[in-house]
Amino acid sequence: MPILVHLDVMLAKRKMKSKDLAEIIGITTANLSILKSGKAKAVRFSTLEAICKALDCQPADILEYTED
């Protein structure tokens, strides 16, 4: 996938655990793990909004486009 997810980096910067973020944004830890590992096929705007709100960041801080 040419879209990279830097959620783990942002979590480390904010010193937040995956479990806590999953609880705040209202998704399961399993789904957050799928998102972190880059296995997700799509991200809902509502989820992205919740992540950005919880981590106080911009979508570009989490997602990055790279050529294959």
Binding site: I27, L32, L35, K41, A42, V43, R44, T47
Partner: peptide, 8 residues
């Protein structure tokens, strides 16, 4: 279904 399941 797979796409729906992997949409977070």
């Amino acid at each position: 279904k797979e796409e729906n399941d992997l949409t977070i």
